[in-house]
Amino acid sequence: MNPEFKPEKIFDLNRKRYFLNGEPDVFHCHHYTTLLTQLAEDAKAFYGPEILFSAAEEAFYIALEKYFQSHHITSEQDRKEISEQYFSYIGLGLIEIDIHGKVEIKHSHLDEGWIKKWGLWDKPVNYISQGFIAAAFSAITGNKPGTFKIQEIRSIVCGAQTSKFTVEKTLEN
């Protein structure tokens, strides 16, 4: 039986904070996520895209790993399916993960938001989803963040129908 992602949403009326599965969460729009991505691009001299990637990797690793632990999700297959469902639940899009190192995104908040705002782009900019993929692979396979290198080889923002990614272990791993 396929596992089902069970969102536990709490709006704490005293603290005025929103929690998803125990973690503080926040709603934002594509104007914010795309402008943060543009900011990362502008800050290339200071490794902006890498920092955006690593922020997403760290934050999503914590969210996924905590969920797996608290719900006793142990097998790679179950973890993969929960990761895919979580990606869609939070509105990042529709993702298919092949744990042998290939990922396809069929709908993407970041790419479709970017196109809505600025039109097509000449290179991939979905550092947030790349960070998510790195986090998911670490959490699925029981590795630490920083273990996987993600390359976006085809991108919706460049006019492709879907985005495709390759996943490899970094040299240090």
Binding site: C29, A56, E58, F87, G91, L92
Partner: peptide, 23 residues
Amino acid sequence: QDGLIPAYDVLVVQMPTNFFNLF
């Protein structure tokens, strides 16, 4: 069904707050 949240004329997303602070 596409994993997107179109609402209020924008695409909405919900993410861990520490992502934004980390960045």
